[in-house]
Each structure stands twice: as C-alpha cells, then as structure tokens.
C-alpha cells in the first residue's frame, strides 16, 4: 500500500474480457433482485441502514482498492454530509433529493480540502493525517452553532421526493434508498473500469513508472479521494434522511474505524466485499445492541482476527476459491 505492492495489498480487479463482463452483469442482476426482495425479508429500516453503510464502505473501498491509501477519517465525509443534509432538509426546507445533493457536494468539497493536504503523505502517515483532520471536523461539529452540539440535528423531515412523493412510508423510502445505493455502486463500478480507473491501477502498481509516463499522479489521487468523499457523503446524507438524525456519532473516529472494519471483513479491494462486510457489521450491531460495550470488544476481536488470519476477507476468499474476480 505504500508503493511496494506485495501479495497482501488489496488490488481491485479490472474487467478483462467479455466473459468477465457477462458474469458481472449476472451478479448485478442478482444484486438488484436481492435489493427488491430485501424489505420483505427483513425490516425496511434495517435494510436501509445496511444499504447506507454498504454505500459508505463502497466509497471507502474505492480509495483503498484503487490507490492503496487507507483513510482513517472517512467519518468526516459521512457525518459532514449527514449534518449538511439534515440542516438543508430541516432549516432550509429543501426536498430530500436536493438536501442529499447538498450534503454530497459539501462532502466532496471537504474531500477536496482534506485530500489536497493528506495525499502529501503516504502509508501510515496518510492514515494518521486523515484521522486527525476527521477529528477536526468532529470538534467543529461539536462547537458549530448549526449542528446542535451533543444533541445533533433531530427530527429531520423525510419530506416529499421531488416535492411529490411522500417518504414517510418506510417501504417507499426503502426503494428510494435502494436506487441511490445502486446508482452509487454502479458509478463506482463504472469509474473503476473507465480510462481513469486504468490510470489509477497503473499508479497503484508502479507509481514511479506512471509518473515517468507523464501522469500527474497527485491529481489522479486527489480526484479519486474527492470521488470517494462524495460517495461517502451520498451515503451519509441518505442516512440522515432515513433516520431523521445527524449526530456526533456520524463524525466520530469510531465511525471511521467501523467502515474500515466493514471493508476489511468483506474483503479490501473486492467489488462486493464492502457490501457483505456492511451487512455483517450492521447485523452484529443490531443483534448485540443490548450488550453495550461488548459490541466494541467484538469489533476489536474481529479486527485482530481479520488482520492475523483473514486478510483477503470473505469475498476475497470466495473469489480465490472460485478463481474469479468478485
């Protein structure tokens, strides 16, 4: 991840040929079917929570899978967008899609600022720098007049989509969230397989060579960072509308750690890993919610186990077994 690719560093696969493309198409159709069936299998609110965090993890994974940069501060974009979205929907009275758009753009801009500074360092320094900047955003959220301090912004109206469709019904909102999730996920997939994605792969594999070929490496990294921050913001804003709440939890360092854990357990650098990881961690939190701090302990144990013995993650292991890219 620090410019010396080894077997252990996560690398996001690129689609190589038409056969690959066909099996991705099948997987996407399968995912879409699952998304339609999900609210009838589990509580819609739970399903929405999974999708918001899955999109968040997809955004985080875009950065680590394509640049090897591990951000430990992605909560800043998730939570920052949650605050902006909540404020826009509640105080400015924007419709939910515009509120989420405002949150997403704010996060992308924040990503531009933090990214421009952070990509000046690599490896573990990058992780520390992003963590520190996220903590700065946390303190800002704690003190700024519009964020509501310890209370956060509560009772955010779900509103009417495009001013027409009421989102107070959980099932209706679920399908909106599912569309947002799928759009974000397909965008990431599209970016990964665009010329931009190819250049990012080249930089990841051999940065000096990419530089010598004339690529402005830092510009590419920054663009990727902004994209990742924006999609994390899309997830955070959607979450604020779903739960009608933006709070300090969304910007705290624990949140940054959680998204790392989701991606790690699902499989860093895989396409579907973050979704699986998000499903597992959110389920875990739901079922253990009454156990208090044991959730933290268990998350820590999963971290340790994953790092010591399970670095490819669940999807990574399945992909190796089946010898396909997932």
């Amino acid at each position: 991840m620090s410019g010396n690719p080894t077997d252990d560093t996560p690398a996001t696969p690129a689609v190589q040929n038409s056969e690959d493309r066909r099996h991705y198409m099948l997987l996407f159709v399968g995912l879409a079917v699952l998304l339609v069936a999900l609210p009838y299998l589990v509580y819609p609110v739970f399903a929405m929570k999974v999708l918001c965090f899955a999109l968040f993890a997809v955004a985080f994974n875009l950065l680590i899978g394509y640049s090897g940069l591990l951000s430990f501060g992605h909560a800043a974009f998730f939570g920052g967008s949650a605050y902006v979205t909540a404020h826009a929907a509640k105080v400015w009275g924007l419709t939910p899609e515009l509120a989420i758009l405002a949150g997403t753009l704010a996060s992308a801009f924040l990503g531009l600022l933090i990214g421009a500074l952070s990509i000046r360092r690599q490896g573990i320094y990058f992780a520390m720098v992003t963590l520190a900047f996220a903590q700065m955003v946390y303190f800002f959220a704690l003190q700024a007049p519009f964020t509501g301090g310890e209370d956060g912004i509560q009772a955010v109206p779900r509103g009417h989509l495009f001013g027409v469709l009421s989102l107070s019904n959980d099932l209706t909102l679920y399908f909106v969230v599912a569309v947002i999730f799928m759009a974000g996920f397909l965008l990431v997939y599209r970016v990964m397989n665009s010329p931009f994605g190819r250049v990012m792969r080249a930089i990841r594999e051999n940065e000096p060579r990419a530089i010598s070929l004339g690529y402005q490496v830092n510009r590419y990294k920054l663009l990727l960072f902004v994209l990742s921050a924006g999609i994390a913001g899309l997830a955070g804003g959607t979450k604020a509308i779903v739960f009608q709440l933006a709070s300090l939890t969304d910007v705290a360092w624990n949140m940054s750690g959680e998204v790392v854990l989701m991606t790690l357990i699902g499989g860093m650098g895989t396409i579907f890993g973050p979704i699986v990881g998000a499903g597992i961690i959110v389920s875990l939190q739901n079922y253990l919610a009454s156990q208090g701090s044991w959730v933290t302990v268990i998350q820590g144990v999963i971290f340790v186990i994953c790092v010591l013995a399970f670095r490819s993650g669940i999807v990574g292991v399945i992909a190796q077994k089946l010898r396909i890219n997932l």
Partner: peptide, 11 residues
C-alpha cells in the same frame, strides 16, 4: 504492509 500493524493495534 505496515498498515496492517495500524489495523491490528486499532483492534
């Protein structure tokens, strides 16, 4: 990769 040390100690 050194990042794994960071992740493990975070856990």
């Amino acid at each position: 990769d050194h990042l794994y040390g960071l992740l493990l100690t975070f856990g």
